[in-house]
Amino acid sequence: MIKICKVTKTYPNGTTALRDVNIHIKKGEFVFFVGASGAGKSTLAKLLLREELPTKGEILVNGVDIVKLKRRQLPFYRRGIGVVFQDFRLLPEKTVYENVAFAMRVVEEPRREILRQVPAVLHLVGLSHKSRMKPSQLSGGEQQRVALARAIVNNPPLLLADEPTGNLDPDTAWEIVRLLVEINRRGTTVIMGTHAREIVDTMKKRVVALEGGRVVRDDQRGAYGCEEAKAPFVLPEVGEPSGL
């Protein structure tokens, strides 16, 4: 689904964030991008979103070289990707419902679809009862679940999460990861950039480790660090609210 071939990214100020990166990701995979701060995780996400262009190399998504996309085609490419960020990026003046519906309005879904789909994803992330609240009235975890709902409401084949748990306490972080796993189980390819060692170690999913802009490790059932993690694959129980 995604082929990142020999990609180098040097920002205009001279910082080289990625060097000769090769990553192939198949449809339906769940991949962690890990690495210290400044390793290049966010840069990779920006390249995939085509917010930035690679200095060298190719990025193929579903066989399309996204570097060559025209400005006119860009919105339609992005409709295939759901995004979640560390800082949620919700619209403070809109309700939870409107924040999610927004993503559907923007791609001009018919009203009928919006009325059907938004409550369904809000139910999936366990926020049906708070759909009329503003983001400021929600906890961090709840806000991130709204962001997640917005990211998946259009059923994108790819979900890109850049440190989605970065601002959350461990329990709340697990709520989000459980949701990502659920979304992945339904067929969406999930890419998650993270520092959360415990989560990565527990999940035993594919891990791509970056260091100074290079891929230093790519394990199919990996851990955050090099040493083999002992913990078995168990999803910790987290109260009720996720509704899964």
Binding site: L49, R71, P75, F76, Y77, R78, R79, V83, R89, L91, F102, A103, V106, V107, E108, R150, N154
Partner: peptide
């Protein structure tokens, strides 16, 4: 910015 991320066209 958010509109662009979720795939809004320029005219939208």
């Amino acid at each position: 910015g958010i509109m662009k991320l979720v795939g809004a066209t320029d005219w939208f």
